[in-house]
Amino acid sequence: MRIAMRIALAASAALLALGTAQAQEKVLKIGTEGAYPPFNNLTADGKLEGFDVDIAQALCDEMKVKCEFIAQDWDGIIPALQAGKFDAIIASMSITPERMEKVDFTNKYYNTPPAIAAPKDSDIKGVTKEDLAGKTIGVQASTTHFNYSTATYTDSTVKPYPTAQEYQLDLANGRLDAVNDDIVVLSQWLDSPDGACCKLIGAIKPVVEIHGPGAGIAIRKGETALRDQFNAAIDAIRANGKYKEINDKYFKFDVYGGDS
């Protein structure tokens, strides 16, 4: 019994030592989702790629720190940040008042409007509540789009999905009448062979209280030093052309949006 106790103690001490040793190496760990192309997604060889990932890498280079990327499911991404599994979320997360109660945000690093997509033979004419009455709308759970849909389309059934790719599957096979997500994400998908089933109905005018001023980098509350570093780095890559280079690699227009 006593020997078993001692082994258990030694093992737990080793675990703790491992934990503290990792902290001292000063690697900035970045959490992202990996299921939200073109912003972030996983390739067949298990690597993360996309606009968010490239921007994050550029920011890390600018800040002269070593960065490590961690893929985390969307609905657990803020708890994982709080629990210390990584130090920042760079995953197209909109800056909203609801989230700001739990985490701090940097300034936005892009801002694109939301939109509605539907099958090509759909009779949906517009994006208002009346246009979508009685329809089933797919959204990704715990996103601004979910909040907007449940608040706006009260005559429709709003179905939350764990990732964007899953509602895409269900829109393509006809389980859904429409989906609501970021216009860039939808357009990219509609342009791909998988999105051949469907078309864009139209953009939605963003509501600041729900959609916020754009996508920012989330960090744990009170870590102002890290936030200031990120903000400075965002300004720097905007100024030195690195941002434009990445922007043009993915998009034909400027995703940064107007100054707000």
Partner: peptide, 11 residues
Amino acid sequence: VRLFNPEATVE
């Protein structure tokens, strides 16, 4: 753990 060592992160 933070009670003993405020810097430590346990993964």
